[in-house]
């Protein structure tokens, strides 16, 4: 049996969650204040994922960058690959919040969507 303690990263409450593990099988989870906290821990132990937030270069715009995010979490170990891939991408305004700028990023099933509105 192994005790492990996590800080839930899903919201700023940062719940301190205590887990008891037996050979990577979860025996108990305590300390979460919402059901998402429990799901997060299970995910974190089996396959940690993160939402990536970053920027993409703009062309034909007064602004230099548009802020973006993945529309769902991607595996944590792909974050830097995703950054390298996005460094090659350029987009043009107008751009609306929520608009898909890159589909199926690195075959993760997640899209890159804009989080800022950029007018022409």
């Amino acid at each position: 049996m192994k005790k492990k303690s996590f800080n839930c990263i899903l919201c700023p409450l940062s719940c301190r969650i205590k887990v008891i593990l037996d050979n990577n099988t979860i025996k108990s989870i305590k300390g979460y204040k919402c059901p998402r906290g429990k799901e997060y821990i299970i995910q974190e132990i089996t396959n940690p994922v993160r939402i990536l937030t970053t920027t993409i270069r703009l062309v034909d715009s007064k602004q230099k960058l548009v802020s973006v995010k993945t529309d769902k979490p991607i595996p944590k170990n792909l974050l830097l690959d995703a950054m390298n891939y996005l460094a090659q991408i350029e987009v043009r305004p107008p751009i609306e919040i929520g608009q898909i700028l890159v589909e199926n990023l690195l075959d993760t099933g997640a899209n890159i969507i804009a989080t800022t509105k950029i007018e022409r």
Partner: peptide, 8 residues
Amino acid sequence: GLARNVSQ
């Protein structure tokens, strides 16, 4: 800062 930020 917040614990979640130290972590992630």
